[in-house]
C-alpha cells in the first residue's frame, strides 16, 4: 500500500460541506471525508451562511481526525497542507483556513492555498490523466457558474461567469418555491425523469455584448411566473413536464456558452465539473456536444463533483510537482470572490 512517503492533508470548507482528505504527492487519494450540512440548511431552502460557519467550527476537528484515521497516518507524517482559500462563503472559508494555517505553522510545513474553482477543474484530472490542451472547463454548482480557458496545465483564464444566480441556485430556488425540498437540483432531476422537456417554452438568455457570461435570474423569474400563471404545484399533473422543461433550459443555456466558446477558441477538449455536473441530463448533453464538435469531453466521477477535499489535495500535489511558488502559511488569508493578485 506504501506508494509515496509524502502526503498532503487537504481541507475544504468553502460552502456547506466540511471535508478533509489525505492525498499523496503522486495523487493517490488515501482518504476523503465529506460531511454534508444539507439537513441543517434544508428547512431554509438554501445555505444559511452563519449556520454553515457554526457547523464547520463544530465538525472541522472530527473530520480532519477521521481523514487521518482512514489514511492510517498521523499529523506529523504530513509533508504539506492544502486549504481552499476562496471563492466561497467567507465565514465558512475562514474556519478551514485558520485550522490549516495553524497546523502548517505548528509543523513548519508548507501550506498551499487553493482556489475553489481551480480545485473543481482538478476533479476532472483525478480520473483522466491525459487531457489534451488547450481545453475549456465549465464549472456548474450551487454557488458558481464559470467558464475557463485552459492553455496548459495549471493555467486558467476566465472566459465568463454568471452575472446573477448560479445555475444550481436557480434550480434550488425553483424547488424551494414549489416546496419540493433542498438541495433542489437532485430533487428536480428525480421528479423530472421521463417528463416532456418541450412542454413549456423557456427563452434561453443571450448576452447582447457577445460576452460568454451566464445569466439565470431571467430563467428563474420566467419559471416562477409560469408556476403562478399555470398554477403549478408539487402535485400538479404536469409537474414532471414543467421540471424537465426548466432543467433542460438550464442545460441548454450552459452548453450554449460552451459551444460559443468552442467556436472562438481552439480547444482539444471540454471539461465539465461542479455539483451540477452530477446531473444526468447535463452530463449526456455535454458528451453529445463533444461528439458534435469533434472534441474530447471529460467528466469527473460523481463523488468528486460536489465539494470535497480530495480535489484540493490533488491540485496541491500538482502545484508541488510543477514547483510553483508557495507563499508562507503566515501570509495566507481567505477571499470571498476572486483571488487577489
Amino acid at each position: 500500500m506504501e506508494i509515496s512517503a509524502n502526503y498532503i492533508l487537504a481541507i475544504e470548507t468553502s460552502c456547506d460541506e466540511t471535508s478533509a482528505a489525505v492525498v499523496s504527492f503522486d495523487r493517490q487519494i488515501r482518504s476523503n471525508v465529506v460531511l454534508s450540512q444539507d439537513l441543517i440548511h434544508a428547512p431554509f431552502g438554501g445555505v444559511v451562511p452563519e449556520l454553515a460557519s457554526r457547523q464547520h467550527l463544530k465538525t472541522i476537528l472530527p473530520v480532519v481526525e477521521e481523514a487521518l484515521r482512514r489514511s492510517e497516518l498521523k499529523l506529523q507524517d504530513i509533508a504539506a497542507f492544502a486549504v481552499t482559500q476562496g471563492p466561497g462563503l467567507i465565514g465558512s472559508l475562514l474556519v478551514g483556513v485558520c485550522f490549516a494555517k495553524a497546523l502548517a505553522y505548528y509543523y513548519h510545513r508548507p501550506l498551499i492555498g487553493i482556489d475553489h474553482l481551480q480545485a473543481h477543474i482538478e476533479s476532472v484530472f483525478l480520473s483522466h490523466r491525459d487531457i489534451p490542451f488547450p481545453s475549456l472547463a465549465l464549472i456548474v454548482s450551487g454557488g458558481h457558474t464559470s467558464l475557463f480557458y485552459l492553455p496548459e496545465r495549471l493555467k486558467y483564464r476566465l472566459l465568463g461567469r454568471t452575472r446573477d444566480d448560479a445555475a444550481g441556485e436557480a434550480l434550488d430556488k425553483v424547488a424551494k418555491f414549489l416546496g419540493l425540498g433542498y438541495p433542489g437540483g437532485p430533487i428536480i432531476e428525480r421528479l423530472a425523469e421521463g417528463g416532456f422537456a418541450r412542454a413549456f417554452a423557456f427563452a434561453i438568455p443571450r448576452m447582447k455584448d457577445n460576452s460568454l457570461d451566464f445569466s439565470f435570474s431571467g430563467l428563474k423569474t420566467a419559471a416562477l411566473k409560469l408556476i403562478k400563471d399555470e398554477e403549478i404545484t408539487a402535485s400538479h399533473a404536469q409537474l414532471k413536464d414543467f421540471l424537465a422543461s426548466f432543467e433542460s433550459a438550464i442545460v441548454e443555456s450552459l452548453l450554449f456558452n460552451l459551444s460559443q466558446a468552442l467556436s472562438i477558441y481552439k480547444a482539444e477538449a471540454i471539461l465539465l465539473c461542479g455539483g451540477v455536473a452530477r446531473n444526468r441530463r447535463l452530463r449526456s448533453c455535454f458528451l453529445e456536444l463533444g461528439k458534435e464538435k469533434g472534441v474530447k469531453a471529460y467528466l469527473p466521477l460523481p463523488e468528486y463533483c460536489t465539494d470535497n477535499a480530495a480535489m484540493v489535495g490533488a491540485l496541491a500535489a500538482e502545484i508541488i510537482r510543477l514547483n510553483k511558488p508557495i507563499a508562507s502559511p503566515l501570509d495566507l488569508d481567505a477571499y470571498a470572490r476572486f483571488k487577489p493578485d
Binding site: I60, V95, C98, F99, A102
Partner: peptide, 8 residues
C-alpha cells in the same frame, strides 16, 4: 479554529 488546530 486556530486554537483547536494548535491544541490538536
Amino acid at each position: 479554529s486556530s486554537v483547536k488546530a494548535l491544541a490538536l
